[in-house]
């Protein structure tokens, strides 16, 4: 008597429990489907200002450089000289004074891992020298030199390189994407034709004591002097002291001598005094600028010297070596 109602009851109960399980499974499966765009912060699709001054949206959209597994997570952004600061804020100054033309950048990632992405920045600096300039002026402290192209290094989550007129940065949101970063960089190098940077001056720095990764090119307003441009600087370790040497190729020997004179005059106007130290170099002067020493001379078409050295002797010796190295 009891069993029959109990059996129907049990069957019904089981069916209901099964339905609950199906509902639970349905809910669980449903939570995988969502529109990732709703959870990611917005990225402007093109440069903020619609005016053409900010750079046209015609041109490569960088999707060619996405490697396997990566897909664009937003549209390509384009910035021109007027709008560059909207993307990189205060850093824009350095690019703008180095001949910046256009920045194209885009994010790539994997759709199932929205927190892991990398952003590719391609700065068109108009010529390879300018690209080298901005590359060299912002070397990161934990740089690991690479040889994939002549000027490249990487940090734990990024890759920086110069390729033709482009200065390229690839920055990932997590360190685990380092492989992808490298892959994208390589793809860019392979895909884009580029001429090497004409930075022959680098070879003129005497190698002894030189920190090769410190070589930098300043395109304009060098050392605060608005007439001086196009100058390479390099750091040396001399007798445990860090000293900076500089050299700049000018148009002609006359021009180099004139620039040396102008620079010395500029220093004097700003409080420097010419010492009577004699380095044995023709036309060289050692100036004391407050509590540092500056050596300025010209040789041939080159303007060169030592900048803001703490120790006058060390500065002098480096200057001599530099002078010898220049041909």
């Amino acid at each position: 008597m009891d069993s029959r109602p109990a059996r129907t009851e049990t069957y019904v109960g089981l069916v209901i429990l099964f339905t609950l399980a199906v509902i639970a499974a349905g809910i669980f499966l449903r939570q995988f489907h969502y529109d990732a765009a709703l959870f990611a912060p917005a990225v402007p699709e093109t440069g903020s200002a619609p005016a053409s001054a900010s750079g046209s949206s015609e041109g490569p959209d960088l999707s060619d450089y996405a490697t396997a597994g990566l897909s664009p997570m937003s549209g390509v952004e384009v910035f021109g000289p007027e709008t560059l600061s909207e993307k990189i804020d205060g850093k824009a100054e350095m690019y703008l004074s180095s001949g910046f033309k256009e920045l194209r950048c885009r994010r790539f990632g994997r759709s199932d891992r929205p927190n892991e992405w990398l952003e590719l920045f391609v700065y068109d600096m108009d010529n390879p020298r300018n690209a080298f300039a901005v590359f060299s002026l912002q070397k990161r402290a934990d740089a690991e030199e690479l040889s994939i192209v002549r000027f490249s290094y990487r940090t734990s989550n990024a890759l920086y390189l110069v390729h033709g007129r482009h200065y390229v940065e690839i920055v990932a949101s997590v360190e685990s994407m380092a492989e992808d970063v490298l892959a994208v960089g390589l793809k860019f190098i392979q895909a884009v034709q580029a001429e090497g940077a004409n930075v022959g001056e680098i070879g003129l720095f005497p190698p002894e004591g030189l920190d090769p990764s410190s070589v930098a090119l300043h395109v304009s307003d060098v050392f605060g002097f608005n007439e001086l441009d196009n100058t390479f600087t390099a750091s040396y370790n001399v007798d445990g002291v860090t000293v900076t040497a500089f050299l700049s190729r000018r148009e002609s020997p006359e021009d180099a001598a004139r620039m040396a004179e102008a620079y010395r005059r500029f220093l004097v106007e700003n409080g420097a005094t010419v010492t009577d130290a004699d380095l044995g170099i023709e036309g060289a002067r050692v100036l004391k600028v407050f509590d540092t020493f500056e050596v300025v001379f010209s040789k041939g078409s080159f303007l060169a010297g030592v900048h803001e050295a703490d120790d006058g002797d060390v500065a002098g010796r480096l200057a001599v070596r530099l002078h010898q190295g220049i041909r």
Binding site: I23, Q31, F32, Y34, F39, P114
Partner: peptide, 25 residues
């Protein structure tokens, strides 16, 4: 289930956040 929906209704993509949970069911 209801309580879980209330708990996960925070904006985000972790399993304990909104994701695709049908919180309005």
């Amino acid at each position: 289930v209801f309580l879980w929906f209330c708990i996960v209704s925070s904006l985000g993509t972790e399993w304990w956040q909104l994701r695709g949970w049908p919180v309005n069911w």
